[in-house]
Amino acid sequence: MLEALSLDDRVAVVTGGGTGLGLEMVRHLARAGANVAIAGRRTGPIERAADEVKLLGRDAIAVPTDVSDSAQANALIAATIQHFGRVDVLINNAALVSDSIPTPIWDISDEDWQAALDVNLTGAFFCARAAARPMADQARGKIINVSSGFGIRGGRDIYMYCCTKGGILQLTRVLSFSLARYGVTANSIVPGFIPTVGTDSEIREALPRSGAYLPTGKLGVPEDIGPVAVFLASSASDYMTGETFTLDGGGLAGGLAPTGYAPEIPLEP
């Protein structure tokens, strides 16, 4: 039964795969046997990630990509198919993290709003659209979209991140329902507070301090996401589609307050 959790020779594309949670997913996919196409805007991190995968004895390519440009999203999937012959798994992980810095609504420009939507939501749609046809043609495919606890609950002054991550969950549901007949499944990962190297110090400041307000009493570490990504990429999740897999320290189950700790809430409106 457990051999279903192996990714022996599957081909996975990970956007935003050079850093943070994306890099951790790349590492775990490769350890589970997958070959990986790593996409990101900056070449340095994705090339280093590709080197790591090769050291693990798997094949990898680094494809510089801005997913908010549909031509580049199409080229990413085309380059993957050209190199590996197919695409089995797409992980839509790229996002503008800077957008989760709280900003009052009157200080958000048209450009701020649009830039976040373009990368976080439109980019995932473009990559899914590019991968859907080849996946349907081979009657097998797995699309994994990285959402956030902020896609389910609201955050004060966190407009674009919440809206786009909520949109990601809906994209997952529509993809799952629409592509089920072609053998393609779609699921979301919902990470809670998991600081990464890329996490801005300003965002770190906004995180619940040291996880004390979470039921687990601690924040997550990037490694937590690895086995979940591998499970969703593997045939062990074949009967699961349109669903969410949450790793959030129990934040959504209980909320941040009723954990036995008293959160400090400033005395302002």
């Binding site: 809670g192 687990t216 937590d224 009967y239 699961m240 669903e243 897999f245 790793l247 320290g249 189950a253």
Partner: peptide
């Protein structure tokens, strides 16, 4: 880090 959650396989 996952707790208090249902995972639906349906």
């Amino acid at each position: 880090y996952t707790t208090g959650q249902p995972v639906y396989v349906d």
